[in-house]
Nucleic acid binder design. Structure first.
Lengths: 191, 191
DNA sequence: CGTTGAATTCATCCGTGGTTGAATTCTACG
DNA sequence: CGTAGAATTCAACCACGGATGAATTCAACG
């Protein structure tokens, strides 16, 4: 079925391919996700994937999506001041990770950091530029950058255990409980 | 060079292959590490790898090494009581991760958790049985298991950023500084 | 020394998966 | 309508990498 040639009607196949790529990268990681599998998910020929996105690495780059403009993200955390920034950070973190729209893109980025050097670089950049440089700039005291990095590392670890490894205790916990527990620990690093 | 047949002398080739496997898995992850690359590192024919360790998955299982008997590990942390357990946990964590002997095995386990379902299961088991069940059992208060899991997640995150992604701020920090900063946050979860 | 078995390499097979260029079907626009 | 170009599939190539079975060299032991 599905013979050669353009399909009738008005359709956004490119978008479907991209969504399939996100879902597949998120679920199986860079190497585990094959172009063929992505194409199958999008119900499309593998060649079409290349037609739209070029090489697999290009497709990966297109699939990595940040939840919101990084600057806005940082602003939202630190804008109201250092007080309560820990809880705001935790809340914002879970907000984007729990949203099915953005989760796949984030998972793709996180898993990518383990799969390819370029993926690791993406994560380094994201954290370096946005989180640490911008947020740590507002903090007082010694070693603000290191403290900010440690706060970020905690969130990374939670993402790993809750969304990748699916550790039962963490997967079962409610977001409210998590924010209540994690927020103060983050605040301890920031204050 | 290296013609067919047994090599003269008394040598532990099997051990060298295993070490090469650990190093390669640690550096490139499960999929990135090829049997051929491992064999080349050990200066050996690929077939020999299979001869000793069977399938690639078997080799991976052999390469994942825990730093010490998990029970002993847990005992060391919680044995002296809840007081100071946070610092002891942090110290023990960095001890095994900074030791080049054990680091490759741990990296293999951590990266493996991202690459294959089985790898994720290994990590789940390790944390589930040892860390959480054993350690959380000694804690007081509500949600001891979740709190313990969160403490563990922080350590995982640090491992990711320091040893996998190689985030500069974290890589540059001294172990003493890290223990001093992280210990109290872990203690906050435990107490 | 001769024989057995372990250690090691050789040659090769085969599946998987990224990639490509040509062919086919549709839409848009004159 | 006719033609240009975009969307889509077809068919195939080719490299990489895991796996295997036979052949070769050495050690151990009688």
């Amino acid at each position: 079925m599905a013979r050669a040639g353009r399909r009738p009607g008005d359709n956004d196949t490119r978008g479907e391919v991209l969504a399939a790529a996100r879902a597949t990268f998120a679920e199986r990681g860079y190497h585990g996700a094959t172009i063929r599998a992505i194409a199958a998910t999008a119900d499309v020929d593998p060649a079409l994937v290349h037609h739209y996105f070029g090489t697999k690495e290009d497709l990966f780059a297109a699939a990595v999506r940040l939840p919101m403009p990084p600057a806005a993200f940082a602003e939202r955390i630190i804008g109201p001041g250092v007080d309560g920034a820990g809880e705001r950070l935790a809340a914002a973190f879970f907000e984007v990770w729990e949203d099915p729209t953005t989760r796949d893109g984030l998972l793709t980025m996180l898993r990518g950091a383990f799969a390819t050097d370029r993926g690791a670089a993406v994560l380094r950049d994201f954290f370096g530029t946005v989180m640490v440089r911008r947020l740590a700039g507002e903090l007082d005291g010694e070693g603000a950058e290191l403290r900010m990095t440690l706060a970020a590392s905690h969130l990374i670890g939670i993402a790993v255990l809750r969304y990748v490894v699916r550790f039962p205790d963490l997967e079962a916990a409610s977001v409210d409980d998590l924010v209540a527990l994690v927020g103060p620990r983050l605040q301890a690093y920031l204050g």
